[in-house]
Design a protein around this nucleic acid. Structure first.
Lengths: 326, 326
DNA sequence: TTGTAAGCGTTATCAT
DNA sequence: ATGATAACGCTTACAA
């Protein structure tokens, strides 16, 4: 790999001149410029972006932190994030923390050390220590979905109200009982599960619409669900805090010979794209994953360009999608 | 952000001494070391990884290029790639080319300019020009699934034989006719569709097992499929070069009132995780997506550590998964 | 034990 | 139109 210095030597000029030729500046004679460009092309010169970044203080890179790709929510974000950042000439550093808070901190720190210019986080950490840590980076941060602190912009939908609307829809369908399946609750003390807590609050707020509202807050939810269903004849809908849970319950219900929605209503959350292929079509709440990603990138760019833009909560539209599972 | 130089000034020592203290080297007195570390901690010193990389010639970063996340295949790779690289202390640059060859070249070049140490590609480009381009980077490259040239290591499964086995399975189920749905074929001239061509070759090789074998090689496959089904009473299985096509055909079949497998056999390819939730359970060919990702990372690390390791094709096991759709 | 000097490759400023 | 110099922040010989 040839460098500016080597081109300079080869052409018998100073590196300043070479830079001017390469970066298409004015104060070079046409002749030397041509000579320099000829050499550069022949040798396949490419700027060393590390060096350039070090010098300029700009890397044109941003970092993305998410949990994992298993629940398909981040997978759908990624396409949008990728598109939006590429359009703007930024490149992407990505790390999945696998819902491990220590991991998250480590990766964020590492990215900061690499001088990314901004950070997109779906945080699994929470609390004042984490907030201080993020602040200490002195870097634009935008949170996706999971709120951390008002010190950082967050792009989200109002999941509490979305859940209220979903509950209303379930009530309209004539269900007398709701079972809210929300495995992340088991990590409430340890992890940031803001959006799930919002959903839970929405469920609570609509308690009055039903004879009974139950919550299952751990990963091994099928046995308990079975017991609950057996314990009452009330017409029941299961609302899941995540489509993936709804899918696994759907599969289980089929195994049990339960017909949906005849024997049990079922509703998911997030409206991941996969639902297109599910039978019966699963009702869900679109949390606008792609929209959030798009706005988050765009807002991050805004903050990068003008750090004085105050942090804000950007609420996007959600959509309650009634299909055939209720 | 405090730097080594500033710490040195603050402690009244040379930067060399600071480095020695920070990087835990021996030739510093305990006293000065403590003094330096105290300042470093108090000020929250963090090494600038750009500077370090520029100096050392190592970035500990690798690049990943894939098509998109839409078909879920790459989504499943990503988790594995992420895990494997993180274990080894590497960080990840990712770009999705959206099946645009120009994009791909641009992103690879950009990553090279950023001095990533190795590249994982699921290539959409092909041919000698592309090969030369990749070689010119002078960088370890490992291809995933889509073969480009014997000059680069490729991790893959033998999709031709996998398809032959799948065809045999279909024959064993008593089908008289196979319709091979492979939309990527429409891009044969323009894009690298190596793995789909392998699958097609596998289909051709087993022609003899059936009365009739047809191919649909474009994206608007449903109308043609309908026509083919209407045109013959022969017991027919549809083999799709990708689970996502099988899923959309399954949905369509249900709309048409076709029962699977009674009225039509159906088989996908890749065995993406989503199939867990599909009813009826879809037969497929596991192309070992996670295994490929894992081995690819591991092999890339090997090449990075020892560039003299010759390029090779690493074949992993595939698995024909017979479920209830045949 | 500590320091000096040179270098990684690029860019900006100020002279000439 | 061209060049000299310093700077970005870190590291590594090589001295002392």
């Amino acid at each position: 790999m040839i460098t500016v210095n080597q081109i300079a030597k080869k052409c018998g000029v100073s590196r300043t001149t070479v830079i001017r030729a390469l970066n298409d500046q004015t104060r070079v004679s046409e002749k030397t410029k041509e000579r320099i460009l000829a050499v550069a092309n022949a040798e396949g010169y490419r700027p060393n972006l590390l060096a350039r970044s070090l010098n300029k203080g700009r890397t044109m890179a941003i970092g993305v932190i998410a949990d994992s790709v298993n629940n398909y929510v981040f997978a759908e974000s990624l396409d949008a994030i990728n598109r939006e950042t590429q359009n703007r000439g930024y490149s992407l550093n990505i790390a999945l923390q696998q819902r491990d808070p220590k991991n998250e901190i480590k990766f964020i720190q590492e990215m900061a050390d690499r001088k990314i210019e901004g950070l997109l986080i779906t945080a699994v950490n929470q609390g004042p220590l984490y907030e201080r840590f993020l602040k200490s980076l002195g870097m634009p941060v935008v949170c996706l979905g999971n709120w951390v602190s008002d010190a950082f912009s967050t792009v989200l939908v109002d999941e509490r109200r979305a859940t209220e609307d979903a509950m209303q829809l379930i009530a309209n369908h004539g269900y007398q009982r709701v079972i809210f399946v929300c495995p992340p609750l088991e990590d409430e003390a340890r992890l940031n599960i803001y959006s799930h807590l919002q959903r839970k609050a929405g469920v609570e707020a609509q308690r009055k619409l039903f004879g009974d509202v139950l919550t299952i807050g751990h990963s091994d939810y099928l046995p308990e669900l079975a017991a609950m269903l057996a314990a009452s004849q009330a017409r029941t809908a299961v609302l899941c805090s995540g489509d993936i849970y709804a899918l696994s319950i759907l599969r289980w219900a089929k195994e049990q010979g339960l017909q949906i929605p005849r024997d049990m209503g079922l509703m998911g959350f997030d409206d991941i794209h996969v639902l297109d292929y599910i039978d019966p079509p699963l009702s869900s709440v679109s949390t606008n994953v792609k929209g959030i990603a798009k706005v988050a990138v765009s807002h991050l760019m805004t903050i990068i360009d003008d750090p004085d833009v105050p942090p804000q909560k950007l609420y996007l539209n959600y959509r309650v999608v009634d299909r055939a599972s209720l």
